[in-house]
Amino acid sequence: MAEVPVPKEKWSGKVGVVSLGATAEEGGSRSRKLTLGGETGMPFLSYEGVMPNRPLIAGEVLDCPGELQEQVRREFGGATEDPVAWAKAWASKGADMICLKLHSTNPEELDCSPEEASQTVLKVLRAVDLPLIVYGSGHEEKDAKVMEAVSNIAPKERLLLGHAEESAYKSIAAAAMANDHAVISFANLDVNLSKQINILLTDFGARKERIVLDPLFAALGMGLEYSYSVMERIRLAALMGDSMLQVPLICDTTSAWKAKEASEELEGHDGLEERAIWWEATTALAALVSGADALIMRSPRAAGVVLRAIDDLNGGA
């Protein structure tokens, strides 16, 4: 019989690991800590390397749901009006983590105070024992204050704080470092910028094992191919030994809901709800295949599809 050689690549580098959430042992109150990263080969290729940690799904929770899609509200049966109930619903639907976005702090809208917002963080932490990712509203100056308050209100929980970008990283990095939380480094669709922000963060004193990189995953039909290739290039660079890119990757796939095809009826084509679920699931699957270690997702149904896909990709289905 023919002997087909196994085209195994000998990589010199590997992706570092980042652990999130602290159990009682470490002074926190999470039921378990989760680990991201650690790959020694390209995604899901077991003949080439190991993928010791299954990619994780964080369920998105907004402290003010704003213009959240009706379809998503229905999936949660009304729980979206209250971040605590929303987070609990995610826990019962199989999310590995919760991603709490404190949009209420946006000074151009509700302008809630950092103290108020951090109380929400505390409530969610008390109600759900999963590791927590926390974002502000995306308003640079305000986020600095919000993240400081969030960091201090849960000093032992090993949160993942989002996000630090080149133009504004010091305050959030400082907030994370003060209580040994992890931080998301963010760069806009570019390998070199991704590397740059990680260099800035580590120079500033952040430890690499506390950094998760978000290279901005554009949704299906909205530039997905750029992100897909940037992710592959980051992962290849990491495996080839570029230490500043040897960090786990996180992708926020909730942007899929901004796509026209996921939010509007298309003339002559029915099935908007089904299409919207697949829009997010497809975005997420492309993120996974190109190297994502964690996903932030909006729809539990889409998350269900993706969890089954992850099992199947790991040979478990």
Binding site: L272, E273, T282
Partner: peptide, 12 residues
């Protein structure tokens, strides 16, 4: 509803 995401992924 399943075909369109697939088509667009291919296009991308």
């Amino acid at each position: 509803a399943q075909a369109l995401p697939l088509f667009v992924l291919r296009q991308n």
